[in-house]
Every structure is written in structure tokens, then in C-alpha cells.
Design a binder for these strands. Structure first.
Lengths: 330, 330
DNA sequence: TTGAAAGCGTTACCAC
DNA sequence: GTGGTAACGCTTTCAA
């Protein structure tokens, strides 16, 4: 099966052009001390002449490492993931690692795709609702360094998450202070650990205050359209609609501009919609995952106990939670 | 340099376990006809037992292809790039290609990073202001399939872009119909081909109408903060501020909520800020680039002439362009 | 300081 | 049908 050459020149051609062996070329190019300055120059000249770039494949095969790592998303829709991947890529680049991305969203066989990616990288970051605990466990068992992001922990694997429960409680407390008495939670707690945590926090906050429990309106999507569609089902009894994320809240707001509603994530749009929400440190989530993964990949003692971190989130009060907020931020 | 094994078992171990040669293992695993059903089963059993996954490195080296392609961004900040990469990844996954991403943003040596990526993929999509025409030309000269995205064409290389000039002219016409007479363009036409096209369209639109030329306020950033900072420099003479992108416009709006201002991109936030803007088909841009790249990679006749496509954009009128718009969309 | 040669893990050609 | 073996392009020991 003849294919296009992966790269133009090989190390052999450079060696021939410079009149040395491939070993010397390799050394010269990698800045080894074991080469005469004279020889090095000859090699570099030849390499430049031939526009030689070492084949990553050959290199990786010989070195036993890819110098790349991957991140698996459930989806890339909306600004949330973009911010995460931005932080991730920046951090990974910091220690010279290429980044592969994979979304499992529409994929028929997500597991196969993840396994394929696993064979292309030195380590893997897995986010949210993408593959089962079982798959994670199997991959981890092969010795592949991994980090879980915004996902429930799996035994023996590092996990980075954002705080959900406590801030949800703070949000509820704020709404109660507004005088709201009836609450609706919009989202699917079974859809992701994050949503589950938020829902749990909402219930806890209400219970603690002795208020009536929130009504759960379970919807599957997490985008603006889902929010718009759900707006119709809210009825009028709902005084305050706590949404699982900003996009749902924005969707509700499009249909009911005066509805008391809150979101989660603090997307750029939230600022302009006056949406009260919870800010997540999205870039920091990505960057932390990348750093942790790198540590796992490079550290000698790979039997270190699984680490967990929960990054703080923060209530951002705007106007959608009700009028006369004492402290309205921008 | 001993490193962790890239994958657990090799084809040799499977061969030994199954009592056959590695050639047979390879054939059995790849579904070749040239294997007895009986043999195949034995091999599959052994492979399952050993949790064997073929090394991508060995495979790629032998096949002469990576089954991966890369996309280079100037940056990943803001929703624009996220949408592009989403469309790109989805399309690439469609034909079984992994996706590598690289941002040249803060990179000291962007060229080296791009070259490194070039050695990891079968083809490269290069977006906007990332690397010079010279580098593009050199890479293309090595025979690496490439597609340029939202970037000025380079001889012999496919290019996919969004329409800028004509829609800019339509935007100007709309503003003129509002009665605006003095215009400011906010952005750096030398910063990207897109901005240059928009600026050109604005000038053309005004010239055609016999209106006074727009005043160019040249600023480097393209984010909200840059817009806020620039708002102060606008003075009061500006009647209509045409911004190079939505984020700048949103920044201006934060400082001057009543300012007549327009953007570009139609970010989610634009909808909630009432921002009149131009919608770009971002996912489609990404998807088209991925499809074109795939074609270049797979097609036999690699000497086909360079293709170019300009995807249409569309004026989205909201309220920031002035009151009493006859047709306000949402 | 340099070179020969042994891997690294596949695929695919050529015999049998 | 199956096995041996030559690539693929590099890094790195081991000799010289």
C-alpha cells in the first residue's frame, strides 16, 4: 500500500548528504555533546538543505513516548467547554505536549474512539458524561495515566472538579432572602455529576431553611433551545427557576423576560442578560487537569494515591434573581 | 531511556499465545479473508486475554499515515473558535481522523510548534493570524496537504473563508438608512484578513453612498476588555461605531449602553445584548475545512488546482444599531 | 568523536 | 492459509 511520504527527507538522506552516519545526525540534531562543532555544522547544513524534520513516528517509537495527551469531552457545544480546553491546551503546551481532542457526543461507539485515542497519547483526561466507569477502570488498569475532569471519581484515578453543593446552597439562601418561596430546578440530575451536585445543594439549602422542597423539572438538554422549550412547562406557580446551567436559564429568559431565574457557569452572555449565576473557573479546571496529567505521566512513583481537588465557585448576583438586590455586581 | 510501556501487550505476545506468527495475528485482527475461522478465533481469544491493542505508532509507521489531522488557531479565546473547532472535529471524526489542536497565541516560537504538529498529522488546517505565508508555503512544498481557514490565500493551497466585504456594505447601508452620518470603525485591519475585509467593505459602502469616510480607531485586541478600553477614546462625535467583532462591540456597550454600535460573529451574548451584528457560519467553516483537508489527503490526484470558497454571512439586525428598526430579529 | 547495529510495533510482500 | 522477513524512521547502546 503505497502512500504519500509522511515527511520529505529521512535521517538517512541527511546522513548521506553530510557524509556521516545516522547516529551522528541524530546526535547533532539533538544537541548532544558528543559531536564536533564542525560535524554538527555540516549536519545542520544538510538538514536545512533537505528541509529535514524528524519523523514523530520514528522518534516516538524509539523513545517510547508520544509527547502528546488527549482530552475527551461529552460535547463541545457552548462556551463552557471552549474555556476548559483553552486552559488545558495552554498548560499542556507549557510542558511541550501536543493535545488531541475527542468529543463523544454523537458517536455510536464512544468507547472505541476513546480506546483509539488512548493508543495515541501518553495520558488521557476524561470529562463528564463520556464513557463509563468500567472503561475508565480498564484504561487505568493498563497503566495509562489519567485524570478525570468534572466527573465522579473512579477508584485510583485523579479527579478535578468544581464545587457545586455549597454554592448551590448559597444561591438558594440568596433567593430566599429575596422573599421567593417556591422553587423549580430545571435540569437532569442524572445527566451529569455536576447537575446532580447542584440539585443536591438546592435541596439541602431549602431543607436547612425549613422551606418547601423545590419542584424538579427534569429535561435532558442543556442548551438554549431546551430552556425555551421548558419555559412553557413551568406554569405560573414557579417563583424562582434555578437552572442547571446558563444556557437553560437564557432560554427561559428568552421566553419569559421577567421570570426570576438563575443559571450556572457565568458565560459571557450571562453578563448581558443580567443573569444571576455561579461562576466556574473553567480555564483553571482545564489547566489543573493538564498539569495533573503531566505529573502522572512524568513522575517515577506512579503508585501515588489518587488525588482529588474541588475548585471553588462563586455566586454572581445580577438582576434576574429579583429586583432590589443590595449588591449587584457586573 | 526506559519508559513506561506505551501499551501492554505486543503483537508478538499475542502470536506466541495463539501459537501462530505475527503475520497471522495481524491478518486475523484486521479481518483478512486469508485466515481460517478457527485460527481467527484462537487469535482473537489470545488478544482479548492479553488486552491487546495494536500500537498506533507501529501501525502508522508501517502504513505510512497518521490517521490524524491538525488545526492551528491563533487563539481559543471566546466562542468563535469553539464553534469552528466543534464543526471541524465532528467532520473529522466522520471519516475516522483524530484531531490535534494547537494555539499559537502566546507561543514564543509558533513556527516550531506548527512544524512539530506537521510531523504528527496527515494534513493541517491553518487559521487566521498564526504563521506567515512563507511557513505555509514551505510546509505545502513538502507535500503536506493543507487548508487555510479565515486567512488570506497562499499560492497552491485551498482556502475557506467567510464573506466580509459585501455584508459590511449591507451593514453600512442599514446604518445609513437609520440616519447615521458619522462612522467609526473599531479594530485593526492589519490584524487579520477578516478585519481587513470588513474595513474595506465599510469604506466601500460609505463611498458608494457618497457619505463621509469612516474614522478608523485602530486597536489591537479583539476581546471585551479591548472594547471597554477603546470606548473612552471614541469621543462624542461618533454616531455609529462599527466594531471588528462582537466582543469589541460588547465591551463598548458595557461602557456606553446607549451607543449605536454593531459587531461581527453573532455570539450567543449578542442576542442578549441586543447587538446588531453579522452572523458567521462558524461550524460550517470548520466542517468545510475538515472535509477539504480530508479530500486532499485521500485523493490520488494531489496536483488538483487550489480551491477557494467563501461562505456567506448575514446581517442580523437587533436594537444596538438605533431605535425603530423596521425589522428586528431575535 | 564516530559508526554499526539492535531495537521500537506494526503491515505487507514473498515463499511455502 | 501461514510463516519469515523486510521495511517504516528514529534513538541508543556497544565497539572501535
Amino acid at each position: 500500500m503505497a502512500m504519500k511520504a509522511l515527511s520529505r527527507a529521512t535521517i538517512y538522506q541527511v546522513a548521506q548528504a553530510a557524509g556521516v552516519s545516522i547516529a551522528t545526525v541524530s546526535r547533532a540534531l539533538r544537541g548532544s555533546e558528543l559531536v564536533t562543532e564542525q560535524t554538527r555544522e555540516r549536519v545542520l547544513a544538510a538538514a536545512r538543505e533537505l528541509q529535514f524534520t524528524p519523523s514523530r513516528l520514528g522518534r516516538s517509537l524509539a523513545e517510547g513516548r508520544h509527547a502528546a495527551n488527549g482530552i475527551v469531552f461529552p460535547d463541545l457545544v457552548g462556551p463552557y467547554y471552549a474555556e476548559v480546553v483553552l486552559g488545558y491546551e495552554a498548560a499542556a503546551a507549557g510542558f511541550g505536549s501536543s493535545v488531541l481532542i475527542l468529543t463523544t457526543g454523537g458517536r455510536a461507539d464512544a468507547e472505541a474512539a476513546v480506546r483509539d485515542m488512548a493508543s495515541r497519547v501518553d495520558g488521557l483526561t476524561v470529562m463528564g458524561k463520556t464513557v463509563s466507569d468500567e472503561v475508565i477502570g480498564k484504561l487505568a488498569a493498563t497503566g495509562l495515566p489519567m485524570v478525570l475532569l468534572a466527573r465522579d471519581p473512579v477508584r485510583g484515578v485523579d479527579t478535578v472538579r468544581a464545587e457545586n453543593r455549597r454554592t448551590a446552597e448559597a444561591l438558594v439562601a440568596h433567593l430566599l432572602a429575596h422573599g421567593h418561596e417556591r422553587f423549580v430546578f430545571l435540569g437532569d440530575p442524572d445527566g451529569s455529576p455536576d447537575v446532580r451536585g447542584r440539585w443536591a445543594g438546592v435541596r439541602a439549602g431549602l431543607a436547612r431553611a425549613g422551606a418547601a422542597p423545590a419542584h424538579l423539572v427534569r429535561i435532558t438538554g442543556l442548551d438554549i433551545e431546551a430552556g425555551r422549550a421548558a419555559a412553557g412547562e413551568l406554569g405560573d406557580r414557579a417563583q424562582a427557576v434555578i437552572c442547571a446551567n446558563d444556557e437553560l436559564a437564557l432560554g427561559v429568559l428568552l421566553e419569559r423576560p421577567r421570570q426570576t431565574v438563575t443559571g450556572w457557569d457565568d458565560l459571557m452572555a450571562a453578563q448581558f442578560a443580567g443573569l444571576t449565576t455561579v461562576r466556574q473557573p473553567m480555564r483553571e479546571l482545564g489547566a489543573t487537569a493538564a498539569r495533573w496529567l503531566n505529573r502522572r505521566i512524568t513522575e517515577s512513583n506512579d503508585s501515588a494515591a489518587a488525588r482529588r481537588r474541588i475548585l471553588p465557585t462563586r455566586l454572581v448576583v445580577r438582576t434576574s434573581c429579583g429586583t432590589h438586590c443590595p449588591e449587584v455586581h457586573r
